[in-house]
Design a protein around this nucleic acid. Structure first.
Lengths: 204, 204
DNA sequence: ATAAAATTTTTAGTGGAGTAAAAGTTTTTA
DNA sequence: TAAAAACTTTTACTCCACTAAAAATTTTAT
């Protein structure tokens, strides 16, 4: 059994994260001060800094929290993917978009993506790259399953194909997040068009 | 002929931009203060704010300046693209990467991309989206030329194919910018693998 | 129960972005 | 050349992220 001190610490961690998520979501990132978060979490502002370092890292920690859940949801698609590659890819992408919006608003995701690019080199940035690689691998697994079942013909490396398609999905995800009015269905259509265009083209 | 006042204004604009570019490049974005820029440009800091609003907008204005040049360089590739689609795509991408690095450092580009995502909705963000669309169109034109010459077979829309491939290029560009050690040649290889994998795959 | 260790809070800063408005300067206009 | 218009500079803020260190509190170990 963990000591009282350890329990208190993880409670504070949780409270701070929860307070941050609530305030970020309702007020936006910039309009939320560390002071407000500290107050809602019932700790001092210095404690927030001691736990998470900076406001940006607090936001990134928030997202990291949701990653486990995302991987589970992806796993569900993976277990029984549609036979058609377009449908399988669309399903994969939709899980990611739905999960994202169920957790944070578009403006906050912009902040997250921006932060992860700026921190590209730091530890935090690398943690993000790792998640991306994990997701790309999942997509490769889906493709492998399709090929096994005889629904996909290709002579090239399925790992590379998974990574390429994941990058495409990532670009469309960023586009989705960047424009408030852009609807889920519209991006879904774009992605279907993307993959259809790519797979039907070939050098002469 | 323009009035003295107008000339003074555009001189100040130029000086500020030049000072900003120099200081951002040598010291980095965060370590450069508006005060430093103002001093180097021989104006007051308030004037810098009057001309460019915020530090971030100043950076974005800097990049906008280089766009004309980029489009020219792309035009040069367009005028006589390699017959092989892999080569054509690689050439297109390399022009963009070379141009980027000849203008700003990787850390600064991270800041630029981050800013353009956060400002996704604002005017500035939309200006970026416009440049992207323009570049995607150029890529489509290259593809059209290849198809005309009989080097590309596809039954789907060449505009969509251009956009899809551009998104892929964008994702790899962001990856390139995000990792300091990532070399030009490595990304070039990735992109060739990407397009090879995509074009050789097809639903069964 | 008390001393030691761990952790939080208080206090007191620093530094830089951004703003509002008054004061000063330079160009334009008549 | 004098008054008006257009700017820029100076001045005097506000706000907030972030930090260092001393003081206070709470848990743990003996």
């Amino acid at each position: 059994m963990s000591s009282l001190r350890e329990r208190q610490k993880s409670n504070r961690r949780r409270n701070i994260l929860q307070a941050a998520r609530g305030l970020f979501s309702s007020n936006g990132f910039d309009a939320t001060t560390i002071e407000m978060i500290a107050e809602k979490a019932e700790v001092s502002s210095v404690t927030v800094y001691n736990y998470y370092g900076t406001k940006t890292h607090l936001l990134l920690a928030l997202v990291a929290e949701s990653d486990t859940l995302l991987m589970e949801r992806i796993g569900a698609v993976l277990s029984d993917p549609p036979d058609d590659i377009v449908e399988a890819f669309a399903a994969f992408s939709e899980v990611i978009r739905d999960h994202a919006l169920s957790f944070l608003t578009k403006p906050l995701w912009r902040q997250v993506i921006a932060a992860s690019i700026i921190e590209g080199n730091s530890n935090f940035g690398r943690a993000y790259a790792r998640l991306d690689r994990e997701l790309a691998r999942q997509l490769s697994l889906i493709l492998a399953k399709l090929r096994e079942r005889g629904h996909l013909r290709t002579d090239s490396d399925i790992d590379i194909l998974g990574e390429s398609l994941f990058h495409l999905q990532n670009a469309r995800f960023t586009q989705f997040i960047s424009i408030d009015e852009l609807k889920n269905e519209t991006v879904d259509r774009y992605l279907r068009e993307d993959i259809a265009a790519l797979l039907s083209a070939s050098p002469a």
